[in-house]
Computed example of a mutant assay.
Amino acid sequence: MADRTSSRIIIQADKKAIMGVIADYPSYPDWADGIKSAEVLSEHPDGRPELVRMTLSSGPISDTYTVRCQWSGDDELRWDLSEAGAVVNGMNGSYTLAEGAAGTEVVYELAVDVKIPMIGMFKRKAEKIIIDSALKGLKRQVEK
């Protein structure tokens, strides 16, 4: 899973507000296209999610899988696949936040492996669509 796809966006809010929305996994179906449900299975001592079961339905992929979250304050969230689904058998990603004069830059990186054969170019295009959609949804949710 060496190939990672990334994108970035500027959001008019501070890191704490943005990370608050990112950490609220049960609300993902409200703003993250393709996420049908997200259930927090366990939390870190600070109350942030550790294990999250997610159900995705996007294009030809419909699956349920579990991710393990690692937080670095309000600067970064990294996750990786804890329990594979029927289709998704590898995943890791991150949100990295950096405040600047124009707002907070949010960088989203994602790498997904699926059990069905997929040409690398199409896989990266699918990841890019997921990332761009998620960033736009995050921006709408935070700035509303």
Rank of each mutant, 00 (worst) to 15 (best):
K16G: 03
Y28I: 01
D75R: 15
V107W: 00
G103T: 08
A102G: 01
Y28D: 06
L51A: 03
G73D: 07
G93C: 05
Q70V: 12
T96S: 09
P45S: 08
R140K: 15
K125I: 05
N92D: 12
A23D: 11
R68Q: 13
K128V: 00
E76S: 06
S6H: 05
I130H: 06
V21H: 10
P45I: 06
K115C: 06
I35V: 15
A134D: 00
Q70P: 00
D24C: 12
D80C: 11
K15V: 06
A84D: 06
L56H: 05
Y25L: 08
W31A: 06
A17M: 09
P29Q: 13
D74T: 11
M54W: 03
Q12W: 02
E50W: 04
I10L: 13
L77Y: 01
V21G: 05
I35K: 12
Y25S: 10
T64W: 04
A86L: 13
W71P: 02
A23I: 00
K139E: 01
I10P: 00
T66P: 01
M121F: 10
R8L: 04
A38E: 03
S62E: 10
A2R: 14
Q141F: 04
D33C: 00
G73F: 07
Y108R: 04
K115I: 04
T66A: 03
A13W: 02
V40L: 08
S37M: 07
G103Y: 09
I22M: 00
V106R: 01
D132F: 07
D30K: 15
L51P: 02
A101T: 15
A13Q: 09
A13D: 05
R8K: 14
F122A: 14
A98R: 09
I11H: 02
A38C: 03
I9N: 00
D46Y: 09
L97V: 04
D63E: 10
V67F: 01
C69F: 02
L77P: 01
G120K: 12
S27V: 04
A23E: 01
I18H: 00
V107E: 10
D14H: 10
R124V: 01
A38M: 04
G93L: 06
P60K: 13
R8H: 07
G47T: 08
I61P: 03
E39D: 15
W71L: 04
V112G: 02
D75M: 07
A98N: 08
D113W: 05
L56V: 15
E99W: 00
G59S: 10
V88C: 03
S94K: 12
A32I: 04
G47M: 07
A134S: 08
K36Q: 15
L77W: 07
I10N: 03
S62D: 06
D14A: 10
I131S: 02
A32Y: 02
R4M: 13
I129V: 14
R68S: 06
E50V: 00
E127L: 07
